[in-house]
């Protein structure tokens, strides 16, 4: 009974006029079209929602040099996509006033960070009480290298006379602040500023005050 009503409702046909022949085949065709509509709508709607909430926050990003910042991700104004991403990954964002997260998966030249290459990170940072720099593998875990170090905090660094610093991220040992690369794969650098004026207004960030991520050389 329901099936008999469907074609009239969806095929936008008026009531059959007396004397005119009624095309029997169009009932099945209309039912197919209805199924087609819902299948396409469901597939497109759900897969696009899945795709947009699967990785980084899709909206509200600000680029500073090699780094990407999502200034509103830790505030009440976080958009629904940001909330969905957090819900799916289990991430606990840094609140505004608590700190700010900067993420780099590319170097200053826009090339993806690769474990086969060596990088120099430094020399300046935005104002903050503390900061940490951490190297992650593609799965979001801090790198696990034989050196047992996956990052630096601002207190641990060797600095030059002007207060600047330089961290070498490479597979081969380097002098000074050395962070060992994992064996292979794409990597991500995350730079966290704790208790920083920049977390309240990201206007305090400009490319001169964030660390540069410079590619040195790459193994073949």
């Amino acid at each position: 009974m329901f099936a008999a009503r469907l074609p009239r409702a969806f095929a936008l046909r008026g009531p059959p006029i007396e004397g005119l022949p009624v095309r029997k085949a169009s009932a099945a065709a209309s039912a197919l079209l209805v199924v087609y509509t819902f299948v396409i709508a469901g597939a497109l709607g759900l897969s696009s929602a899945h795709w947009m909430t699967n990785g980084e926050y899709p909206f509200g990003r600000v680029g500073v040099g090699a780094w990407t910042v999502w200034p509103r991700s830790g505030s009440r104004e976080a958009d629904p996509y940001t909330r969905a991403v957090n819900a799916r990954t289990g991430a606990i964002p840094l609140g505004v006033g608590e700190g700010l997260l900067l993420r780099a998966s590319v170097d200053d030249g826009g090339r993806a960070l690769d474990a086969r290459c060596a990088y120099r990170v430094g020399p300046a940072t935005p104002q903050a009480r503390f900061w940490t720099l951490t190297l992650y593998d593609v799965a979001g875990r801090p790198v696990d290298t034989p050196l047992g170090r996956s990052g630096f905090s601002s207190a641990e660094l060797l600095r030059d006379q002007n207060g600047g610093f330089s961290i070498t991220v490479s597979r081969e040992a380097a002098t000074g602040n050395w962070l060992m690369m994992p064996e292979s794969g794409p990597v991500t650098l995350i730079f966290r500023l704790y208790d920083s004026p920049a977390s309240v207004g990201s206007a305090a960030l400009d490319f001169r005050t964030v660390p540069r991520v410079e590619r040195l050389e790459c193994a073949p």
């Binding site: 709508a41 696009s48 947009m52």
Partner: peptide
């Protein structure tokens, strides 16, 4: 055309519902 409109509605509904339906959120 209807499919695209419904897809947009399904997309928005899914994004808004994810935080309430997620099982792996913190």
């Amino acid at each position: 055309l209807c499919a695209f409109v419904l897809a947009a509605i399904a997309h928005l509904a899914a994004v808004l519902a994810i935080p309430y339906l997620a099982e792996k959120d913190a």
